[in-house]
Design a protein around this nucleic acid. Structure first.
Length: 938
DNA sequence: GCTCTGGAATTACTG
DNA sequence: TTCAGTAATTCCAGA
């Protein structure tokens, strides 16, 4: 199997564990086979994907990102336990796969951004076509490899880059998240693409070439001012002709967008923006805020037509790609990337900003005059300082002056989903941040560092790292919606300094996303207290106007702290880990008015209801109501009922509710619904997931499998687990075709799935899908498994993350794991926990729960049971087989597996299953789950 | 004098 | 098109 596996994949996956691994491999293999796609051929990584999926599923740790500095981001997957990491250079890494790339060729992940996506813009074909060259990925991904700066070996700090180069580089870095853009964008992460910072290396000079658009900018890197013209040009492309006023969107803006407060003041500022310079033009505000944040929202650019065009044309040549990238950047970043307002603000604040700058001067360029356009140059400046030993935080022993080993062109883009653990390493958020943190606008002063619930600050620790060399922990603000984790376009991390801050930090920009770099020192057990990170809010209008930006800022006020660490391996590769915090609500209003459910004592119960559930959270009022809702896939309500709240027990942070009976007491499989706390009109908490189980056990069938039992058992345990409806981190692995699952799946299983409004099951489907189980679930939709099962059956297993419906969790035989899943899933927190990871390897999040105690810091523990072990090939096969044979959708499997509460539930009567399902289906139909397409598996 | 916070006024946006 | 309510953004003021 492995051989096969290897072949398809990159060739090097060493699965440490014996049997389990083998099984996993088998599964993978089979999956891979199923998944065949043109892409595979084209991209070596495709195979990886397949493989990776399982792995990922198995454990978060499984996949690990490897990269060689020089080579393009090749990533090899490894199970947590694996001792050996693949050393292949070429291997495309599944991990790093841009989301955009879908093995299946299916449309990219559905999600990336809230509403709109540019994916469509980028046909996957493009991507796949490049297939000829494994290394070359469409979008120049491969090219990246090619491009790799010869000297890349040494990571170059932007700082080192020549200004000019910096510019180009910057431009090159379009932030658009790879998946958003639909294709992988090396630029995104400067690190990712060697070329990314052409500037970086003189050789990169070619880079300059590359940036046609950027050319202007490139040409004048530093010159911020000068650049402006160019920028303007660029901007034009990207932008609508409109005046680049900061907020084209809102005419009103002239007045000052929302900024009402001091209308006058705000107005002035905004107008200023307008007048002063067009958005794009504003090239240089000398003072631009040192902080990159404003500028960059990552997503911007990729979407540019230019970019596409270029990309397409030159997929083959790395150079071309590089050029394209540059171009893109130039276009995007320069003009669009920076919100007018922002600039304005920056100007205004510049002075202050400069003050803030540390000795390192990281923030402001020496010039202090950098313009946004110059942003690149700014970067360069920063980097320079960086190189020079940028920040010095006197207080902290750690000296930034050290070159950062891990920095390499091949580092994964910020929108890539990474595992929280790999091999021996495990990155965990030991102390989660508070669920509310009011972000500050540029027009405001800092609102301080994000705090922990306990009153302290979040704490992050890397386990399993035994070297004496300090590492750098990266922190950026990520999204908290149902989709894959990615840099948040409307928020940036903000470095907090001062006497009260004990942790040294350093800011760097990557793909328009500000990253805070914090030292992880062996002497501190690779543990860092995050007391230096605040959250900056960018004006919606500024960001939304950016070309390529598809997210909307309105009501998009939840974020997560995303931590990353890159560990160099002896073989020259780099392991990248990522952990995301629980969601943080950043708006003032939300923090004050909206109820928030942080935990729920149970996430499932029999359809008969009647049990009491305890909700912990914030802003609960005596008049708070709890409403259970089931929605169809299309969003329409299938059922809605208000639960009885125990008025006597209401506290601002706790609520006891009686679970209402489900509308249909005869359900034969778990049904997923949602509930939310409502404090009044428009004051609702996020939807929380809840699962109704068949009243009387014999629910589901299951795969004729031995291990099944465990599953059943597992499912049973009800747990109080915090449960966020929000999406979890995106799966690590690139999904073959997330959408397939989502889209296809949904249709097929409308009723139950539909239930989860807030978090589309598919939401982060992607990676999961890949896993065998997940796969199966997805199958219905997936091309390969055309025979989708009937929707009704689909009810996902309980606890999934809202964001990720079960896909993530296949019914794992493993009891432990399963249990972990159940519990953990419910709560976002758990997701990350290593232990839980076993089942949710995919998720990068770390949860508080994941505390060392609960999760052995040792990688071995939880992580170990990667998916591989968890799933035996047989199971997988069985599942698949059953699905097919039975005619049921694989999705069913999960259900079976997970029915939580009844330990006994499992029934192993394959033969009868069909009938059961039929009955169920019929019943469902009768119940008029009409909107849903149901099929019987006859 | 500055930063951090909480609160609220004003304006933009949505339905 | 107008209006009311909600959300966003900016200010103010106190600790």
């Amino acid at each position: 199997m492995q051989d096969t596996f290897c072949l398809s994949v990159t060739s090097k996956f060493s699965f440490g564990a014996a049997t389990g691994k083998e099984r996993g491999l088998q599964l993978l293999t089979s999956l891979a086979a199923d998944m065949k796609s043109a892409e595979e051929d084209a991209y070596s990584y495709t195979p990886n994907v397949s493989l990776s999926l399982p792995l990922g599923m198995g454990s978060p740790c499984l996949a690990t990102q490897y990269h060689t500095l020089q080579s393009s981001p090749v990533i090899s997957v490894s199970s947590c336990h694996q001792t050996g990491y693949s050393s292949d250079n070429h291997a495309a890494s599944g991990y790093y796969l841009p989301h955009s790339l879908r093995p299946n060729g299916a449309p990219a992940l559905e999600s990336p951004r809230i509403e709109i996506t540019a994916y469509s813009q980028y046909p996957e074909d493009e991507v796949e076509e490049s297939s000829s060259d494994d290394h070359i990925i469409k979008r120049g991904v491969n090219s990246i490899v090619t491009l790799t700066l010869p000297n890349a070996e040494g990571y170059r700090d932007p700082s080192c880059l020549s200004p000019a180069s910096s510019i180009s580089s910057r431009s090159c870095n379009s932030e658009a998240s790879s998946y958003e853009s639909g294709f992988y964008n090396y630029d995104n992460s400067p690190q990712n693409s060697p070329w990314q910072s052409p500037c970086v290396s003189p050789r990169g000079s070619s880079m300059l070439l590359s940036c046609p658009h950027a050319s202007g900018p490139a040409g004048s890197p530093h010159n911020s001012p000068s650049t402006s013209p160019q920028i303007g040009a660029v901007a034009e492309e990207g932008w609508p002709a409109q005046p680049r006023g900061s907020r084209p969107n809102s005419p009103s803006y002239s007045g000052g967008g929302g900024g009402g407060g001091g209308s006058g003041g705000s107005m002035g500022k905004r107008k200023y923006s307008f007048n002063g310079t067009s958005y794009h033009q504003t090239p240089c505000s000398p003072n631009q805020s040192p902080t990159p944040s404003p500028h960059g929202s990552p997503r911007v650019s990729v979407t540019d037509d230019n970019w596409l065009a270029n990309t397409n044309q030159y997929t083959n040549s790395a150079i071309v790609a590089a050029i394209n990238a540059l171009t893109t950047d130039g276009v995007v970043d320069m003009g669009e990337g920076i919100p007018v307002k922002t600039r304005k603000t920056m100007l205004d604040h510049s002075a202050s900003m400069s003050l803030k700058v540390e000795p390192g001067g990281e923030e402001l360029g020496p010039d202090g005059e950098l313009c946004h356009e110059d942003y690149p140059s700014r970067l360069a400046l920063k980097k320079e300082s960086y190189c020079g030993g940028f920040l010095d935080v006197p207080q902290h022993p750690y000296s930034w002056s050290k070159p950062k080993p891990y920095l390499s062109p091949s580092l994964p883009a910020l929108d890539w989903q990474l595992p929280s653990c790999s091999g021996p390493y495990n990155l965990q958020i030991e102390v989660q941040p508070k669920s509310h943190h009011r972000a500050h606008y540029e027009t405001e002063g800092s609102r301080g560092a994000v705090k922990a619930l306990s009153g302290g600050h979040p704490v992050v620790q890397l386990y399993g790292y035994m070297e004496s060399e300090p590492l750098t922990l990266q922190l950026f603000i990520g999204t908290a919606d149902d989709r894959l984790l990615r840099p948040h376009a409307f928020y940036q991390v903000h470095r907090i300094t001062g006497k009260t801050v004990s942790t040294a930090s350093h800011e760097v920009m990557q793909s328009n996303t500000k990253i805070l770099e914090i030292p992880l020192l062996p002497e501190n057990n690779m543990r860092a207290i995050i007391d230096c990170a605040g959250i900056l809010k960018l004006r919606n209008s500024d960001i939304e106007l950016r070309k390529g930006e598809t997210d909307i800022g309105r009501k998009n006020t939840r974020v997560r702290l995303v931590f990353r660490v890159h560990i160099n391996q002896p073989n020259g590769r780099t392991v990248s880990l990522q952990a995301a915090s629980n969601p943080i609500e950043c708006s003032q209003r939300s923090a004050q008015e909206l109820p928030l459910v942080e935990k729920q004592s149970m996430d499932s119960c029999p359809a008969t209801g009647g049990k009491m559930i305890l909700l912990n959270g914030l802003n609960f009022l005596p008049e708070s109501k709890v409403v259970f809702v089931e929605k169809a896939q299309d969003g329409h309500h299938l059922w809605e009922t208000e639960a009885k709240v125990d008025k006597d027990s209401i506290k601002s942070n706790a609520l006891v509710v009686e679970i209402p009976p489900y509308r249909n007491q005869r359900i034969s499989s778990p049904v997923q619904v949602n509930f939310y706390v409502c404090n009044g009109k428009r004051k609702r908490s996020q939807s929380q997931r809840f699962t109704y189980l068949p009243p009387n056990v014999p629910i589901i069938k299951t795969e004729p499998h031995d291990e099944y039992d465990s599953l059943g058992t597992v499912g049973l345990s009800m747990h109080s687990t915090p449960y966020y409806s929000q999406p979890r981190l995106a799966p690590i692995m690139p999904v073959a075709d997330p959408e397939a699952c989502l889209v296809g799946g949904y249709p097929s299983c409308p009723p139950r799935h539909a239930a989860m409004p807030s978090s589309p099951p598919s939401s982060s489907p992607t990676l999961h899908d890949l896993s065998p189980v997940a796969f199966s679930k997805c199958l219905p939709n997936s091309p390969t498994h055309a025979a989708a099962p009937p929707g009704p059956m689909v009810a996902p297993p309980i606890q999934d993350n809202p964001g990720h419906p079960n896909l993530a969790h296949p019914p794992s035989p493993d009891h432990n794991s399963s249990i972990g899943l159940l519990h953990s899933q419910g709560s976002p927190n758990h997701l990350n926990s290593p232990g839980r990871h076993n089942y949710h390897p995919i998720y990068t999040n770390s949860s508080p729960s994941s505390s060392p105690a609960s999760h052995p810091s040792t990688p071995g523990g939880p992580a170990e049971s990667p998916f591989v072990q968890a799933y035996s090939p047989t199971q997988a096969q069985a599942a698949a087989g059953s699905a097919q044979a039975g005619g049921r959708s694989p999705s069913l499997l999960p259900e079976d597996a997970s029915p939580p509460s009844m330990a006994i539930t499992v029934k192993q009567e394959p033969q009868e299953l069909d009938q059961m399902y039929l009955d169920d289906v019929n019943e469902i139909i009768r119940n008029d789950l009409s909107s849903i397409s149901v099929h019987t598996h006859a």
